[in-house]
Amino acid sequence: MVGLVVVGFFILVALFAPFVAPAGPNQRVARPHEPPSAEHVLGSTRMGRDVLSQTIHGTRTSLMVGFVAGLVVTVVGVAVGVTSGYFGGRVDEALNLLTNVVLVIPNLPLMLVLAAFVGEAGPLTIATIIGLTAWGWGARVTRAQTLSLRQRDYILASELLGEPAWRIILVELLPNLTSIIGFNFIGSVLYALITEATLEFLGLGDPLALSWGTNLYHAQETSALRVGAWWEIAAPSLALVLFGSGLSLINFAVDEIANPRLRTLRVPKRILAALRPVGPAE
């Protein structure tokens, strides 16, 4: 519940950014590197722009990249994993080889090369690069679960009844892979969010696009820490930590739902009272 509240809060901030932000993201409203005050809660940048406004508006781009890349990673990973695990044979060998290649190549160096080759990649380009290079782990997990479900009686019965493969996959397999798909999607969003911030912090993104990563990049370029303007780096960093923590909490909950052995036993108070040993005086 805490994770849902945190993630929901950031989604609402992203949706209503123009109405929530106290000023425009590129509007000069204060002196350079003005510390936090009642008028500017998170201080100002070297250009006199409100840090809170930039962080709020940057939420839109960062969340867009995270969810788009997470969706691409999940769709590609599930499609490859289910196809490989269900059909088997040469299809499984070919797709498994492709998955192994994707897993062997280090993701971050590959994305650094691709982003540098593209040059000042925009948010949508970064999301596409992340989505097309980070699906290997999800495909491997989905394939393993599909191989387990492939031998279940209801799958074999559907095949004996002559049901087409597409219907078995969509109606019989995918509903039983919901927890794995949800786990994969949430983890992919978190990974994409951190990776996008890393690429933009290193200067491989579009500096004109406003996001948490570009906020950190501009803070580094203006030597914010050297002049003591810690708030310029603290604001986007704290936003990344809070949103990532919210996603992690949701991820833990999905893991408990998928694996009943991880669930915490909660005994109602009335049952504890009934089980309490009765003393001699009572």
Rank of each mutant, 00 (worst) to 15 (best):
V2H: 06
V2I: 15
G3Y: 10
G3H: 09
L4Q: 03
G8F: 06
I11Y: 08
L12Y: 11
L12C: 12
V13S: 06
V13C: 06
A17R: 07
A21W: 13
N26L: 10
H33T: 15
H33F: 15
P35S: 07
P36K: 04
P36L: 04
P36Q: 08
A38E: 14
H40P: 00
M47Q: 14
S53C: 08
T55S: 02
T55F: 07
H57Q: 05
R60D: 04
T61W: 04
T61E: 03
S62D: 10
L63N: 01
L63Q: 02
M64F: 13
G66N: 01
A69K: 06
A69L: 11
A69F: 11
G70D: 00
L71M: 12
V76R: 10
G81H: 11
G85N: 08
G89K: 10
R90V: 15
V91R: 02
E93F: 08
L103Y: 04
L103W: 02
V104H: 01
I105F: 14
I105Y: 09
P106Y: 07
N107H: 05
L110P: 14
L112T: 02
P123V: 00
I129L: 15
G131T: 05
T133S: 13
W135E: 08
W137K: 04
T142F: 02
T146C: 04
L147E: 13
L149M: 12
L149P: 00
R152S: 07
Y154R: 08
I155N: 02
L156Y: 06
L160Y: 07
L160R: 09
L161G: 11
R167G: 01
R167S: 03
I168Y: 08
V171R: 14
V171T: 15
L177F: 01
T178G: 13
S179A: 10
S179R: 06
I180L: 06
G182S: 05
F183Y: 09
N184D: 14
N184A: 07
F185L: 13
F185I: 02
G187S: 06
V189S: 12
I194E: 11
E196R: 01
A197R: 10
A197K: 11
F201E: 03
L202R: 01
L202D: 03
G203I: 14
G205D: 11
G205P: 10
D206A: 03
P207K: 05
A209I: 12
T214K: 01
Q220P: 01
E221C: 02
T222Y: 12
L225F: 13
L225H: 04
V227E: 13
W230Q: 03
I233F: 14
A234G: 00
P236Q: 10
P236G: 06
S237D: 10
S237C: 09
S237H: 06
L240S: 05
L240T: 14
V241P: 00
L242G: 02
G246A: 06
S248V: 13
L249V: 08
I250F: 04
A253Q: 13
V254L: 12
V254S: 00
D255R: 08
E256S: 05
A258T: 13
N259E: 12
P260T: 10
L262P: 03
R263N: 07
R263G: 08
L265Y: 04
R266W: 02
L272D: 11
A274E: 14
P280N: 03
